[in-house]
Design a protein around this nucleic acid. Structure first.
Lengths: 263, 263
DNA sequence: TACAGCATTGCGTTTTATGCAACAACTCTG
DNA sequence: CAGAGTTGTTGCATAAAACGCAATGCTGTA
């Protein structure tokens, strides 16, 4: 039998169109005119006008002063800022976090960026292992921890300077990276290979692997990783742990990006 | 004749409803169930389902793993982050900036927050006045400039510590605030009165007044202010300048928040 | 196991969104 | 300066889309 081609769930056409408008306006570097909207959706200008008007009335679109074309409105800004994304991240990631912790039998952490720090927002401990550093709620520097560096993966030198200033960075241990240039290079590597490490750069005798969680394989919204005392976590374990962490980070990212669970 | 009560422009009902759903989900600290959505809009469950489904398919809503209720989806996050808000801010603010500069006959600046710095994204110079510090593109510290402190107005002590760490802040001039506690108090004052000042706290012999630009009288998205050498800009000018700056900041904020230009 | 609550689907009806056409404001062009 | 061509906006009749109702699954519970 042929695969069902028609979607069983009917779509609300006008809502769908409105969201498409929102998307195209958001992704366009320029204000979008009514004609472009009508073209894009292949509908009449009057319809486009009414859709755009509703979006504008709700604050999702706006018109630059004097102009008649559309840009994103304040609602998008406000709503996405007021929303507690970390909460959502925790909910999605927690099962994976637990799985990771039990698989490897170490502590797994979930972190997000908060200013120039990484903030641990969740963790899962292997049952019989003594808790290591990095409790939920703790803030650690971005530039000298695996989680922090994972969160910085996409930053270039200019961006790093904006965050940390021109001067040298505080040296916590003998392994701490203190120059912006070196940090930029490290970030680049992390971006390439997909994970970051912490060779006792902040706390001594600790190792950590962390991978950025990306929305749509782009935007970094958090990081997931495993930490353990260097005694138990030897360098030879990096490949294995890193692979697992990357896989999990990727799965979480896919899920957050709205991957469908198609039967 | 009576004022026209019926809105001349017809509304797209289903789009409007969809946006209302988006709003309520974004503002709810908890996932929102189908029933709640149906209740909120006073429509049938089936309709609510189809609307929510459309939003989900487009990534504006998502379901937590395993659960059947709704949270914000990644599209909101992605779209609002990829969007170049500063560009919009510049476009809206530039005329006001020019007006301000010519009225007072000094230089006016527009800034946004970028990490722990304020970034000047636009400026307007009075015709015959020599340019002062703060060119477009320049980064200045948040804690010791009027623009920076305006951008920090809503921060509490905890937030400030997260940004600047526990240690004392770098002292640029004899007036630089170096303790977080003092900074927190200053921010509180700024929030109360609506504007921030810079008493040569960063550059010497310079004064500046700046006010935060707020979305919906809440979220701070930028700052606008006037700078001048202390020689020309005496303390006695603060009240007048501050009032003007606040008024302009407010107007820009109102506009950005989607104020309608009703005839 | 049966029931209760909720999500999901089918279907006929009615609302509602749509395209057409006309109008207005404005720009470009000859 | 005038006329032709855009582009934004409103009115209206029709066609289609969205809606509510009711029936069907699905899941968790007494």
């Amino acid at each position: 039998m042929p695969p069902r081609k028609s979607p069983q769930v009917p779509f609300i056409q006008s809502l769908d169109r409105g969201l498409t408008i929102l998307r195209s306006v958001a992704l366009s570097p320029q204000p979008v005119s009514l004609g472009e909207i009508a073209d894009l959706l292949d509908i009449d200008r009057s319809s486009a006008f009414r859709l755009a008007h509703t979006l504008r009335r709700r604050g999702f679109l706006a018109c630059p002063p004097g102009r008649k074309d559309y840009v994103l409105g304040s609602s998008m800004w406000t709503l996405s800022h007021q929303y507690d994304w970390s909460n959502m991240l925790v909910k999605v990631a927690h099962p994976e976090l637990k799985l990771l912790a039990t698989q490897i039998n170490e502590t797994a952490h979930l972190a997000i960026r908060e200013g120039k720090n990484a903030l641990f927002i969740d963790s899962a401990h292997a049952t019989h292992v003594i808790a290591v550093a990095g409790q939920t709620g703790e803030l650690v520097p971005l530039y000298c921890t695996a989680h922090g560096k994972a969160l910085l993966a996409d930053a270039d030198e200019r961006e790093l300077r904006a965050q940390f200033g021109a001067g040298p960075l505080q040296k916590y241990t003998k392994n701490t990276i203190t120059s912006i240039k070196a940090l930029a290079k490290e970030c680049d590597q992390i971006k390439q290979r997909g994970f970051a490490t912490d060779e006792s750069e902040y706390g001594s005798e600790m190792r950590c692997v962390a991978a950025p969680i990306r929305l749509g394989n782009e935007l970094i919204v958090g990081s997931i990783g495993i930490s353990a005392p260097a005694l138990r976590f030897g360098r030879e374990l990096y490949p294995d742990y890193a692979a697992k962490v990357c896989q999990v980070a990727d799965r979480i990212g896919q899920y957050l990006s709205g991957a469908e669970t198609k039967p």
